[in-house]
Design a protein around this nucleic acid. Structure first.
Lengths: 208, 208, 208, 208
DNA sequence: AATGAATGAGTATTCATTCAT
DNA sequence: TATGAATGAATACTCATTCAT
């Protein structure tokens, strides 16, 4: 078992992929989106175009990888925020800020999957799972809020789903108009849900 | 009096544009999405490629026209529903159904507008106006509902905005996963907002 | 013999051709040269494109006609100057001015024949004849000058030929650089030939 | 030291350009003239069309390069002849022969430069410079001839200019008629200038 | 004769991918 | 493994010409 050289190879492999990921992200986030050339990514990564094909079967796979990585990043960040030791209402607000901030920086990347056609290649199940995780993160906060008594007893799944829908809608709308100013829409969203989740003063439920 | 021949010419012009619009819609909605060829549209319209250029300056303008036409269609349909002589809550539901049904049929066209980059060519103001009109339609129904006493007194602008965000989010999410099944998300959305808009039993407001 | 209607037809025909000629000249002289469209000529002539084809078999013939007409114009003007009742030396100068002035105005037309490829269609004999006539015009002036004693006895054919060569060369060079300033080159040419043609003071030939 | 590989790369680059140049020349000089296709050049060079674009930004630049190369060739050849160790009169004759011979071979290329509109892209200054160099070459010979006592003392600049004009005129005329037979015109030109430059027998100037 | 909408062939250029070195 | 030159398929748009009215 050539464990050592094998591991060495893996390390190199990962380092290269990492470099390519960074380069691709830079190129994608950088400019226009129309015309994301493999050559540009290679140049940004400081390697030859042919080298890209040693790490990714083709352009689609490379973009798929970038897409996944970003999903992982934002999702793990979201989960971190969801578990932060602060009030549920505040966590909701923080998470929203994080998402909008991320979107403002990497909005081109959101188009990526769609425009490059790789969406069709991702299994439906995988996509559904990603969405479920996202909704689950919101739901987690909501349930915490209900448990804390900060929120009234609502159908947390449904509430999280609608909340998530609205978040995605806001991102999409801002992408459409081109101005990535989420403040007004974000405030509206938080305001409405705060109201919706407000505990009923005449029914002061203490959850155990 | 050149009125007659002039009118005749306009009629022919419109008929041709109409035929091309239908053909483009058919081609776009029909199949692959990657690679919408002018030739295909021409073939579908039963004319030569050159003929397309008698009615549209270039591909972009043709797609822009198709995009606008669809926006007009869905918007006028929405306004019609908003003014239908039925209860506000039902109008909300009907409108949602209409939008989802429309999206299920023409989603490829919406993709195309985005992917072909024509979105960037539309003035921000125009895009903003379209969104405002859409939100205004929802708001109109909400205000009617409040007036009818069917909904409690809420900030209709904010509520309409968030509702619209959620609708767009649902469309986007369904586009992402590829299954255009809006039932669950639609029910969740309607359910949540019905609850949110439910008149307070202890504050029986009678609007005149 | 339908002489009357026949003549009428001819008159109309000529009028139409004339209008088209004027329009073509305007369009050609007007702008860039790249892209001389039949439609533009038709528009300038105030007729439909199809109408052009009632008077000219195709684009080539139309351009050929324009080309010929211009040749006729400059040539007849040249002959007129050649026969003007002034000193031979002055006629040479006047003719040069006329040619350069004409070229400055219609230089695009000179390219016409060449760039539109109609040159290849004109019979060599016809082209040769045109050149011969041009040279003959110069030669005519030279012979007059020799007869007047203003020029010394030279081989007028050869002298006229070289003179003509230089004139064409000047036109070509100015076309090449794009600035149509013929003054310096014209002065050089006239100066050299005046000197060349200067009667030998020691051999005062009186040609009868 | 990247010198070696760098030099190697340059050599390959030059070799490729050279091959493309040869191919373009062959294609252009070869046949029709109307419709010079990049594909044809690529095929003649034995490469794919895309390869052409590794060496030339676009068609225009390729043609520009060919044009420049030919100018350089004829000019250096001209200068070489101008400095040949033979009598000035003979050098004049040789140079004329060389130019005519060159033109007979490559006239299509000169046409092409004009017809493809690349002439407009060359800076006026550059074109003027080329012309100046050409005239200067003739002037150099003339001055030598004057110094040798073979020619009489003339204004060499003016004489060279007119001589050059006539040469260009001859080329243009022969291009126009299509027969590239320069003999008669060449003889006339040389004859006239020999006479013009003939030293005055009564004024035996000894230069130095 | 006049119209002018319809025709449709023809071509430069890009860029993901390969493969000899 | 890295290189990067070579590959070659794929597509929008123009404009001379036609012909039904």
């Amino acid at each position: 078992m050539a464990t050592f050289s094998e591991r060495q190879r893996q390390v190199k492999q990962q380092a290269a992929q990492e470099a390519i990921f960074d380069a691709a992200l830079k190129v994608i986030s950088g400019a226009s989106l129309e015309g994301l050339k493999m050559q540009d990514i290679a140049a940004a990564a400081g390697v030859a175009t042919g080298t890209l094909y040693n790490y990714f079967k083709n352009k689609e796979e490379l973009l798929y990888y970038v897409d996944q990585r970003l999903h992982d990043q934002i999702l793990s960040k979201a989960i971190e925020i969801a578990h932060a030791p602060v009030a549920a209402g505040q966590r909701l607000s923080l998470l929203l800020q994080e998402i909008f901030s991320f979107a403002a920086t990497y909005h081109l990347v959101f188009d990526l999957a769609e425009r490059s056609g790789i969406v069709d290649r991702i299994p439906v199940q995988e996509k559904q799972e990603l969405l479920d995780q996202a909704v689950a993160t919101f739901q987690f906060i909501l349930e915490d809020g209900v448990a804390e008594g900060a929120f009234r007893k609502v159908d947390t799944r449904k509430t999280a789903a609608v909340f998530f829908d609205a978040v995605i809608g806001i991102l999409e709308i801002q992408k459409y108009v081109g101005t990535y100013d989420f403040t007004q829409a974000g405030l509206d969203l938080l305001g409405l849900f705060r109201e919706y989740l407000q505990p009923d003063p005449f029914m002061p439920e203490r959850n155990e």
